[in-house]
Structure formats: C-alpha cells, structure tokens
Design a binder for these strands. Structure first.
Lengths: 186, 186
DNA sequence: AGCATCGATGTCAGGATCTGTCATCACTTA
DNA sequence: TAAGTGATGACAGATCCTGACATCGATGCT
C-alpha cells in the first residue's frame, strides 16, 4: 500500500465516467479527471496508456471469462460447441450490470475515439477466442473462422441487450443471434 | 488549379508511405511528411483528419465498389447472394494491387494506431454493407447479420491474400472463406 | 485591361495528449 | 534504525491537432 487513498485506478475510472457524462468526452481533459480523483495527470497515464482506456477495464480478466469456459468444455465438444460454452459463461457474468452498461454505452456511442476503442476490444476478443480454440487442438483456420463468428454473435447480442430498456437475458440473446447467424449463412 | 504543384493529397500519401517504410510510423512526424511533400503541417491536417488517415484512401469510392454491386444484384437475389455479388465486385477491383497491398500492409501491421484504423474501416464496411442490403428491402436484423458475415469473409480472405507471396485470386479466396464460414456455422 | 472573388495554402498561436526523468514519501524488511 | 521498494508528484518537452487570419494565383465579370 502507498501513503495515499487506495484504488487510484478505480477512482480515476469513476471520475472519468462522471465527467464524460457531465460535459462530454472531448470537453474533459485528462487533467480534469486526475484532479477529481485527487491525482495528477502523470498518474493517470501510469494507470491507463490512453485517455480512452479509462472506460475499458482489465482486459485479461474480461477475456478470461470467455477463454476459461472454452478451455474447460468437454474434450469431445466441436469448435462451435466449445465457443458456445465460452459465450454462455461470459454473457452470464453480465447479469445485473445492465444499468451500468447502458450508462457506459451512452458515453461510448457519443464519441468516436471510444467507439474506435470498442472495435479494438472486439478484435482482441477474436484473437483470444481463436487462441483458446487452438489450445483445444482446433486448426488455425477453423479457429479464426469460429472465433470471428463468436465475436459477431456476442457483439450483436450485446448491442441488442444494451438497447433494450429492461434487462434481458444476455446469454439467451447471444444464443438466438448465433442461431440467426447459422440461418443467415445457410 | 492552384498556384502550387497539383495533387497535394497524393503527394502527402506517397511521402507518408515512404517515410513510414524508411523510419517507421512513430519516428515520422506529420511535419516530416509535409516537408517531403513540399507542404506544411497545417495542409496535411486539411487533407487528412488524422495522421493515420494518410494510408487509407477515399472511403466513399472504396465502399461503393461493394454497395453498387449489391444494389444492382437481381431483385430476386437473397441477402447472402446480393452480398456475394458485392464481394465479387469489390475483390475484383484489387487485381494487380498485390505488391502495393503487401507493402502497405507491412506498415499497418507494424503499428498499433494503423491496425486500429483498419478495424474502424472494417466497422464502417459493415455499416455500408448493412445499409446497402436494407435498401434492397432486407430487414434490419438480417441485414446486420449478413453484413457482419460479409465483413468477416472479406477480412479473412484479404488477410490470406496479403500473406501469400504470389498474387492469388482474391475473389476466389473470398468465396472459399464464405463457404468455410457456412461450414463452421453449420 | 482591370477588378472582385474564390479556393488552396501558409503563418502563427495555442491547447491537449503522452513520455522521460528525477525527486519525494510512506511502508516494508532486515 | 537504516536501506529498499513502489507509487506518486513535479517538471520539461515532443507531437498531434485546431482556430484564426494572411497570402497569392486562377477565374470570371465588366
């Protein structure tokens, strides 16, 4: 522990979300965020490589919710089945987050740099899903294909989930989208 | 015409590609690019909204190669068939560009900001494909789904195309990937 | 020819993002 | 008690990007 208030990273994230909602992303400087968190600009950039990063939590923990489930799917499971297991597990972890997710999404949707950052996150998800499948012995090409399908399904399902005013079941939504993808590709 | 050398935009793009290859993206400042093109930094930012943009040509013309073909597909064509027509047309337009595409891709792959910009371009492609399908009367949800499939297919096929040392047939590659996607989703 | 206008570029000032470097201070451990 | 560690502060500076105004050649009108 240091000599200061704990959880500098969390305080910065909280301050940033507040300020983005109050005055918008562009009108908020990194110095503003740091000041509200009782820190300096330099510390912000030690915690986050980028101004955008402050709204995107720890990627490793996030991706692990997908990849752990893919890894522990039955050995006999086909690639798409293992992927489905990963989607089930990850989507379940969003239970109860709907109000926060909507708030956060409203900020992201309103700002190009944040929308871009979200795309990057999706690309990284593809990489992680692909890697997790390959660790199951799935061939490179199939793994990439399947991972892309998974990312598309999750992306579209998440979009629907966030757009709904009531909290729907994200896991069920994702399964639906995956089924629709199958139908669209047929 | 102005009083200066013509095609400021083209000269900037050319100078940028050269410098990125010579010293790398990070080590090249916008002022460097402008100087090599015989222009000023301010003019660079009048041509390109962003340092990254200089490697990504006119998006409207690019997307039109997809959407025009989708629009002119037979009225009876199903969504996926219309999409295929769009992919066929757009991929055909890359004939002979392989050497340049590889050079450009080597620069993009080496730099995070450029890789990110490429992801954005893909997201925009999804939007355009989706819109083009909707103009054919395809339902919103199906249009989005199909557009995502198209973007995935194009993305993966383009990746394979650029990775190959010889210039393969991008149209054929894309059809193959689309077929593989069907199989992976089945 | 003479003149007004227009569009692309130049010039200048300045704010914001992001990095490097070194100092500081509390907590830890020997 | 003293050295070590790790997070933070303080400061300087490069680069990105924008706004405002000036400049100058081409164009078109009279």
């Amino acid at each position: 522990m240091g000599r200061w208030e704990p959880d500098a990273r969390g305080r910065l994230a909280q301050a940033a979300l507040e300020l983005f909602l109050e005055r918008g992303y562009d009108a908020t400087t990194v110095a503003d965020i740091a000041a509200r968190a009782g820190l300096t600009e330099r510390t912000f950039f030690r915690q986050f490589s980028d101004k955008r990063e402050v709204l995107f939590g720890d990627p490793a923990a996030y991706f692990a919710t997908f990849t752990d489930a893919i890894a522990s799917a039955p050995a006999a499971a086909k690639p798409l089945e293992a992927l489905s297991a990963g989607l089930d597990a990850a989507t379940a972890a969003f239970a109860g987050m709907h109000p926060y997710a909507r708030l956060r999404q409203s900020v992201i949707d309103a700002n190009a740099p944040l929308r871009e950052r979200e795309q990057i996150k999706r690309a990284h998800l593809v990489d992680e899903l692909s890697e997790a499948l390959r660790r199951r012995g799935v061939a490179e090409s199939t793994a990439r294909l399947t991972a892309e399908l998974g990312a598309v399904a999750f992306h579209l399902a998440f979009q629907r989930w966030v757009q709904a005013e009531e909290e729907l079941d994200l896991t069920a939504l994702t399964r639906e989208v995956l089924a629709e993808l199958r139908a669209a590709a047929a």
